[in-house]
Design a protein around this nucleic acid. Structure first.
Length: 960
RNA sequence: GCGGGGGUUGCCAAGCAUGGCCAAAGGCGUAGGCCUGAGGCGCCUAUCCCAUAGGGGUUCGUGGGUUCAAAUCCCACCCCCCGCACCA
C-alpha cells in the first residue's frame, strides 16, 4: 500500500522540523548515549547495517519514551585502503568492478566516472547513506555528523594518539606481513588472487653446526624434538648457498637467503651450490653435541623455510619413511659416498611419551595405517595426527634434560625461549601456502621495520580492560566469555600503515593511523562536533590543550581560550557537553567486531578516560544472511538499505529484520517474510483504524477488565525484553501477542465498538512505536493526539488494572473450549447440545487448599487431609474428599506457578455464571446449544451422570 | 587447529541458566470454512501418531549416563555458522 510509504516520509519530515531527535544537555533529565559504529563508505549501506541500526534505533526510541534524554549520533568512516583501492579500479576502467557499482550499488553511469576520485566516491556514498538512514526513520541527531578525514576529526585522533603515547600504550617494533614485492605493500586478504586466510608462520631454526664457524639452520615447528635427531635431510637437487647472515655463516637454500633479506636480516651470499654437496657430511647437535650424517631427502621442499630439515624418525612419520627407504637402498647411498652400514645403524631416538603408543609412535602409525612410502598421502595425515596427539598429550622423556617430565604443550614456548637465549636457535617467517597478489605476483613475508604498535600485550592494560568489561552489561550475556578470551588473546597491534586515507601519525612521518585504530573513542567527538560545526571552529583551534581541557579537565579555560582564540564560553560548553553525555551507555554491532573493534573500544576507553567515563554496555548481534546465504556483492545477493526501504517501506523492513533474530543468532533476510510483514503492518493499520473509528461504547465489563489486565502483562514483557536488547522477543510480543489479545477480546465481545479497545490501542501503539514508528505515529495522530508518539511516555504496568478474576474467567472459557474440542475429536460427534456441569463448592475448597500447599514444597496428602477433615463445610463430603484431593494434587502440577498463586486468592470462581455469560460465544464456537448446571443442581439434565467428575476449571461435559 | 555461538515438531524460531506447568509460545507454510463478482487482504478452525468422552503413545543433532522425572543436568561423538589481525 503506497499510503504507508508516503506516510513514512511525512513523519520523517515532521520529526525533522520539530527537531525531536536533536539532543542537548539537560541536567534535569537522565541521559542515554547510544551509538552505532560508523559504517565504512566504500559502498552503499546494506540490510546488514539496517539490522543493527534498527536495534539501536528501537532501543533509542524506547529509552526516549522512557523519559531519557537520548543521543543517537551518526558518522562515516573514510579511513583506510579499500576506498582508495576501489576508486583505483574505476580509474583503471575495471569493467567487472564498474558493473558491480552499476548493478548492485545502483550508481548512475555519469557518476561512476567521477569515482576515479576516491573522495568523490566517499562523498557520493555518504550522501546516499544519509538519505537511506533518514528514510529508515532512525532517530539521529544529525548536527553531530562527520567523516573521518575531516581536519577537525583528525585533530581529535592526533590528541588520542599523543595521549596514548604519553601513557605508554604505543611502542615501536617489527612486524611480519604478507607482502607483494611488486605493489610494495602488505597484501591483505581482499587483495589476493590466491591464498585467502594465509598468514605468516614463525619457524624455529635449530642451528646445527657444520663446522666451527658454519651453521646449518634447520626449520621446525617442533623444536622439542631436537633430543631425537638422527640425521638431517637435504634435497640433493636443490640449490643451496653459503651466506653471511648478520654475523654468522649459514648454509641454507637459495630461496631462504632471499627471504631472510626481507626479514630484517643482513644477508650476503658467498657461494651457490647443489644440495648433493652437503650430503654425506656430518653435523653436530648443538644441545647434545652428538654428530650425525646429512642424508639425501628428495621430499625436502627447498622453497619452504630454510630448505634444511632435521630428522626425528621416532616421532615423525615422514622421517621414518625416508630413513627406511634409504636403508633399503644401499646403492643410492653409495652414489653419495655414504657407507650404507652407517645408515643401517641409525636407530630412531624416542623422546616423547604419549598415550596409546609405545616408544616409536611414528613407526607404529606407519604400520597401523599401512603407509607405503613418503609419497603416500596418508603420510601427511599421520603427521598431523601425531603432531596433535603429542602436542596435547605428550610428555618429554628422561633424555630431554631439564625439560624431562613436562607436557609438550606447556614446555614448547619455554624451550624456544631458552634455545634462543643460548643462541642455538633462531627463527624465520614463511607462508604455509602460496599467496598470490591481485597483480599476479607471488607474495613473500616481509618484516616491517619501525612499525608502531598499540601494546595490547600490556598485562596491566589487559587487567584494566577486563575490569571495565566486568562492570559492563553485555547483551547477550553469552558474549562476555568471548570478550574475555579476546582480551587475553590480543597481541600487539600494528596501528599505522603507509597507504590509504587517515590521520597521519603525529610523530611518525609517512605513517597513517590505521582504520581499526582510529575508531575507538570517537564517540567523544560527537559530543563536541555540534559546537565545532555550529561555530565553525577551525581545526587549528583544536589543540592538545583544548582537547585536554574538554576531555580531561586539564588546564585553565581562560588561558587556553586566549591562547587559541577560542571563545571561552564555547570551550566551556564543549566541556560540559562532553561531561554530560559521556560515558557511552550502549554500543551495538554485529559479532564480527567483537575480536577487534568492540574490544579495542574498551581498551582505549580505559586507557584514556577515568572509570566514570568507561562504556556502560555493549550489544552484539548476528550477521545478516540473505535467503539463507551470506551476503556478497559477487554472489549477486546484495540488498541495499535504500532498495529494501523503497520496496517494502521502512517499518516493514525494520520489523522484518528485528523479527528475524536476536542474541548472536544470524538473522535471515527473506523477501517473502518482508513482503509478509508489509501486509501485516497494513492490516494492523486497518485493524487499528477500525477501532479508532468505531469506539463509542463505554463499558467496563469483565472483558474490558480482562483486556486491560492482560495489557499490563504485555507492557512488562515488552519493557523487560527491550531492556535486555531482546528486540525480537519484544517485537514479537508487542506485535503478535498483543494483537491476539485484541482479537480474543473482539471475538468474545462479538463487536469492536468499545472505548476500552481504543484506550488499549493507545498503549499498544506505544509498545510498537520503537519498532514501527511511522505507522504508529500516523495512528497516534488519528486518535487525535497532538503530540508525537515518538516522545510520548512509555507505558508503565499498572497493578491496579491487573484483574485476576477477569483473567481467570477467560482462562476457564479457554479450558472449557479445549476440553470440549478434545471430547469432540475423540468421539467424532457433531454436537447438537452441549451440557456443562460445574464443580461443587466443596471441590473448590479442596482445590484451593491443594494449590496453596503446592506453592512451597511437595504436597503431602495426609497433611492436607488432616486440615480438610477439620473443615465444617466439607463434613458432608468427607468420603469423596480423599479421592478428590489426591486427584487434585496431580492436576495442580499442570498449572503455571503464577496462576497457582492467583487462584486461591479468589477463593472461588463462579463457574456457572461465567460459562452462562459466554453461552452465545460457545454456541457460535461449537454450533450447538449450550446448557450449564451446577454439579449439585438437583434439576440438572444429566442422563449419563457425568456431573460428578467435574473439577474446578474442568466442568463435566456431556454432549449429544 | 584455536576461540565463540548454535543444532527443537514442514520452514523460521521460543524454551533450555532455576529439571516436573512441554506435544513444546509466536510467525510462516499447508488444509478446511467464512468474506469477495473472482482474486489479494482479512477473519475463524485444524496441522506428531492413536483414541466414540476430556485419555494414551513417540518426539527436541547422535549415543550413553544421573534422576521418581530431562528439550532442559553430566560425558562422548557428529554437523552448521562466526572470528583468527594490519584488514574493513
Amino acid at each position: 500500500m503506497e499510503f504507508l510509504k508516503q506516510n513514512e516520509e511525512k513523519w520523517q519530515k515532521r520529526w525533522e522540523n520539530a527537531k525531536i531527535f536533536e539532543a542537548n544537555p539537560d541536567p534535569s533529565k537522565k541521559k542515554f548515549f547510544i551509538t552505532f559504529p560508523y559504517p565504512y563508505m566504500n559502498g552503499p549501506l546494506h540490510v546488514g547495517h539496517t539490522f543493527t541500526a534498527s536495534r539501536v534505533d528501537a532501543y533509542a526510541r524506547f529509552k526516549r519514551m522512557q523519559g531519557y534524554n537520548v543521543l543517537f549520533p551518526w558518522a562515516w568512516h573514510w579511513t583506510g585502503q579499500p576506498l582508495a583501492g576501489a576508486s583505483e579500479r574505476v580509474a583503471k576502467d575495471d569493467k567487472e568492478f564498474i558493473n558491480v557499482l552499476k548493478e548492485v550499488d545502483g550508481v548512475p553511469e555519469e557518476e561512476i566516472k567521477k569515482f576515479a576520485d576516491p573522495l568523490y566516491m566517499a562523498t557520493y556514498y555518504t550522501n546516499e547513506g544519509r538519505d537511506s538512514v533518514k528514510r529508515a526513520g532512525f532517530s539521529v541527531d544529525w548536527r553531530r555528523e562527520f567523516n573521518t578525514i575531516m581536519p577537525t576529526y583528525q585533530k581529535f585522533i592526533e590528541w588520542q594518539y599523543e595521549s596514548l603515547k604519553e601513557k605508554g600504550y604505543v611502542s615501536k617494533g617489527t612486524h611480519p606481513v604478507v607482502w607483494c614485492p611488486k605493489c610494495q605493500s602488505p597484501t591483505g586478504d581482499h587483495d589476493r588472487q590466491v591464498g585467502e586466510g594465509v598468514t605468516p608462520e614463525e619457524y624455529t631454526l635449530i642451528k646445527f653446526k657444520l663446522d666451527n664457524e658454519t651453521y646449518l639452520p634447520a626449520a621446525t615447528f617442533r623444536p622439542e624434538t631436537i633430543y631425537g635427531v638422527t640425521n638431517i635431510w637435504i634435497n640433493p637437487d636443490a640449490t643451496y648457498v653459503e651466506a653471511q647472515v648478520d654475523n654468522e655463516k649459514w648454509v641454507i637454500s637459495e630461496k631462504a637467503a632471499e627471504k631472510l633479506k626481507e626479514q630484517g636480516r643482513v644477508v650476503s651470499t658467498k657461494r651457490t651450490f647443489r644440495g648433493r654437496e652437503l650430503v654425506g657430511k656430518t653435523f653436530e647437535n648443538p644441545i647434545t653435541k652428538d654428530r650425525f650424517l646429512i642424508l639425501p631427502g628428495w621430499f625436502v621442499d627447498s622453497t619452504q623455510a630454510t630448505g634444511v630439515v632435521y630428522s626425528v624418525p621416532a616421532h615423525a612419520p615422514y622421517d621414518w619413511l625416508a630413513l627406511k627407504d634409504l636403508q633399503e637402498k644401499p646403492e643410492t647411498l653409495r652414489e653419495f659416498g655414504i657407507d650404507p652400514k652407517a645408515v643401517k645403524k641409525i636407530k630412531p631416538i624416542s623422546l616423547i611419551k604419549v598415550e596409546d603408543f609405545g616408544d616409536f609412535p611414528a613407526i607404529e602409525l606407519v604400520e597401523q595405517m599401512k603407509i607405503k612410502d613418503q609419497h603416500d598421502p596418508k603420510a601427511e595425515e599421520a603427521t598431523k595426527l601425531l603432531y596433535k596427539k603429542e602436542f596435547h598429550g605428550g610428555i618429554l622423556k628422561e633424555n630431554c634434560m631439564q625439560y624431562a617430565g613436562k607436557m609438550v604443550s606447556e614446555v614448547k614456548d619455554i624451550l624456544i625461549r631458552d634455545f634462543r637465549k643460548q643462541r642455538t636457535a633462531d627463527s624465520m617467517y614463511d607462508l604455509p601456502q602460496s599467496v598470490i597478489c591481485r597483480c599476479l605476483t607471488p607474495c613473500i613475508v616481509k618484516v616491517l621495520q619501525d612499525q608502531w604498535f598499540l601494546t595490547y600485550t600490556d598485562p596491566e592494560w589487559k587487567e584494566k580492560t577486563k575490569e571495565a568489561l566486568g562492570k559492563m552489561a553485555i547483551y547477550p550475556e553469552t558474549a562476555t566469555q568471548w570478550f574475555l578470551t579476546v582480551i587475553d588473546w590480543l597481541k600487539e597491534w600494528a596501528c599505522a600503515r603507509t597507504t590509504g586515507f587517515g590521520t597521519p601519525l603525529p610523530w611518525g612521518k609517512g605513517w597513517i593511523i590505521e582504520t581499526l585504530s582510529d575508531s575507538t573513542v570517537y564517540m567523544a567527538f560527537y559530543t563536541i562536533n555540534k559546537h565545532i560545526r555550529q561555530y565553525n571552529i577551525k581545526p587549528e583551534a583544536l589543540t592538545k590543550e583544548v582537547l585536554n581541557y574538554i576531555f580531561c579537565e586539564k588546564g585553565n579555560a581562560n588561558k587556553i581560550a586566549s591562547k587559541t582564540g577560542l571563545n571561552g564560553e564555547i570551550l566551556d560548553a564543549m566541556r560540559k557537553e562532553f561531561a554530560y553525555w559521556y560515558p557511552v551507555d550502549l554500543r551495538v554491532s554485529a559479532k564480527e567486531l567483537v575480536p577487534n573493534h568492540l574490544t579495542f573500544f574498551i581498551f582505549h576507553h580505559v586507557a584514556l578516560f577515568p572509570e566514570r567515563q568507561w562504556p556502560k554496555a555493549i550489544g552484539v548481534n548476528g550477521m545478516l544472511m540473505i535467503e539463507g546465504k551470506q551476503m556478497h556483492k559477487s554472489k549477486g545477493n546484495f540488498v541495499t538499505m535504500k532498495n529494501a526501504i523503497e520496496e517494502y517501506g521502512a517499518d516493514a523492513t525494520r520489523c522484518a529484520l528485528l523479527l528475524a533474530a536476536e542474541g548472536m543468532d544470524d538473522p535471515d533476510w527473506r523477501s517473502e517474510n518482508v513482503k509478509d510483514m508489509q501486509n501485516k503492518l497494513e492490516s494492523f493499520y486497518k485493524f487499528a483504524k477500525d477501532i479508532i473509528k468505531n469506539a463509542k461504547d463505554k463499558e467496563n465489563g469483565h472483558l474490558e477488565k480482562w483486556l486491560m489486565s492482560i495489557l499490563q502483562h504485555r507492557i512488562s514483557e515488552v519493557t523487560e525484553n527491550l531492556e535486555q536488547m531482546k528486540t525480537r522477543t519484544a517485537l514479537e510480543i508487542a506485535l503478535f501477542e498483543t494483537w491476539n489479545d485484541f482479537r480474543w477480546y473482539i471475538r468474545r465481545k462479538g463487536e469492536k465498538e468499545s472505548e476500552t479497545l481504543k484506550e488499549a490501542l493507545k498503549t499498544w501503539l506505544k509498545l510498537l512505536a520503537p519498532f514501527a514508528p511511522h505507522v504508529c505515529e500516523e495512528l497516534w495522530s488519528e486518535i487525535q493526539e497532538k503530540t508525537f508518539i515518538s516522545t510520548a511516555e512509555w507505558p508503565k504496568p499498572s497493578k491496579k488494572q491487573v484483574d485476576i478474576y477477569a483473567e481467570e474467567q477467560e482462562n476457564l472459557i479457554k479450558e472449557v473450549i479445549e476440553d470440549t474440542l478434545n471430547v469432540l475429536k475423540a468421539t467424532k460427534i457433531t454436537p447438537k447440545k452441549i451440557f456443562y456441569y460445574t464443580a461443587a463448592p466443596w471441590k473448590w475448597i479442596v482445590y484451593c487448599n491443594v494449590l496453596e500447599k503446592s506453592k512451597s514444597r511437595e504436597v503431602k496428602l495426609n497433611e492436607i487431609m488432616k486440615e480438610l477433615a477439620a473443615n465444617e463445610d466439607l463434613k458432608k463430603h468427607l468420603k469423596e474428599v480423599a479421592g478428590f484431593a489426591s486427584k487434585m494434587v496431580k492436576e495442580v502440577g499442570k498449572i503455571p506457578e503464577k496462576r497457582r498463586e492467583n487462584i486461591p486468592t479468589m477463593k472461588t470462581l463462579n463457574e456457572e455464571e461465567v460459562i452462562k455469560d459466554a453461552k452465545d460465544f460457545l454456541m457460535q464456537r461449537f454450533n450447538a446449544q449450550i446448557s450449564v448446571y451446577s454439579e449439585e443442581d438437583a434439576k440438572r439434565y444429566d442422563p449419563k451422570n457425568k456431573a460428578s467428575v467435574s473439577m474446578p476449571y474442568r466442568p463435566a461435559i456431556y454432549i449429544e
